[in-house]
Amino acid sequence: MTISTVVKRHLETGTSSVRHLLSTRDVTRHDVTRWMARAEELRVMSAKDRQTILAGSVVAAIFYEPSTRTRLSFESAVLRLGGRVISAENALEHSSAKKGERLEDVFRVLGCYADAIVIRHHENDAMAMAAPQSPVPIINAGAGSGEHPTQALLDVYTIWRELGQVDGLEICIMGDLRYGRTVHSLLQLLTKYRNVSVTLLHPASLGLPEEMMQALRSRGLSIQTTQDLTSALSRADIVYQTRIQTERLSCIDEALGTEKFHLTSASLSVMKPSARILHPLPRVDEIHPEVDDDPRAAYFRQVENGLYMRMAILEDMVRR
């Protein structure tokens, strides 16, 4: 059962009026535009004025898998808006999950303590199945190899800030497309935009799941695959690089051929002067450090953009 199916069924039964952010499939283009506009306002707002926005609110952050950027980005966003954070890191080992507690019960309990729950989970669909039991909004901060919607939202925000548009762009996505949840969410979000053309480059065993490929094409997204790195880079307005999800590989052979898709200074020589390079981070060796100083490398600006996008999302969902 997909996240969208669970949410749709839940809404149809009328059992809750709480809005969750579980998948980019459940986000409208209007939502994205509204959050980007608010992120721009929050960026220039005084710290004093921002501190009143979530004053008195508490957000629970519970992470069953490791995280640096996402967890601290959310926690910083809450604090900058004047709210408070209660958190559990490595919750798979250091929470009642170790005792076998069901996620439905976790949401019921945390909903007594907090006004929203930010969660990263090791299973693709567990939080979607449990979300209907939560009395407060659930924000998906990464679900197994499934989705990572707030990363996709900050990615699109970065594209818009860097190039001034999303419609009509050529986007090259590279790396682990099978297990890369950031890619899954980004591709779903790109279906909201017009005339976007996507080229996929990946090791043979790490391609986009076929069911997802068909679903994206049925929603009008133009997708092609290629092994010609030079050609794809030369056409791209956006190059979205990802790391190999080694922690999710069934065997090491799945990673064979990954070095072919690394970005180096030689890669830069074939790219457009106006192109931009994005990466959800962390990186390993798929983008060489020599690329960092090129003005087209936008991945650290992307991190900063994520702070303001998550501030906008939290304000909207916690105060709803």
Rank of each mutant, 00 (worst) to 15 (best):
A152R: 05
I171G: 02
K99C: 10
M127P: 07
H148I: 01
A116W: 03
Q133P: 00
P149S: 11
A143K: 02
E123T: 14
V109K: 02
P135S: 14
E147R: 08
V156C: 04
D115W: 05
A97S: 15
D105S: 14
V166D: 01
E101P: 11
I138P: 01
G142A: 07
G100F: 06
T150K: 07
S95W: 07
A128D: 02
P137I: 10
V166Y: 01
A97V: 11
N124C: 04
Q133Y: 15
E170F: 01
L110Q: 01
E147H: 07
G144K: 04
I139K: 03
L153T: 00
S134K: 06
Q165A: 15
L169D: 07
S145G: 15
T150L: 07
I138L: 13
T158P: 06
P135E: 10
G144F: 08
P132A: 09
A128Y: 03
A114N: 10
E147N: 13
V106F: 00
L110I: 00
F107K: 03
W160M: 14
G146K: 05
I119R: 01
I159V: 15
N140M: 13
T158G: 06
L110A: 01
G111Q: 12
V136W: 02
C112T: 14
T150W: 05
Y157P: 02
S134C: 13
A114F: 05
I171Y: 05
F107Q: 01
G168H: 08
W160C: 05
E170D: 15
K99Q: 09
E147G: 00
S134E: 09
Y113N: 08
R108V: 09
S95R: 06
G146I: 00
V136F: 03
G111P: 12
W160P: 00
L103C: 09
Q165P: 01
R120W: 08
A131P: 07
R108F: 00
V109I: 15
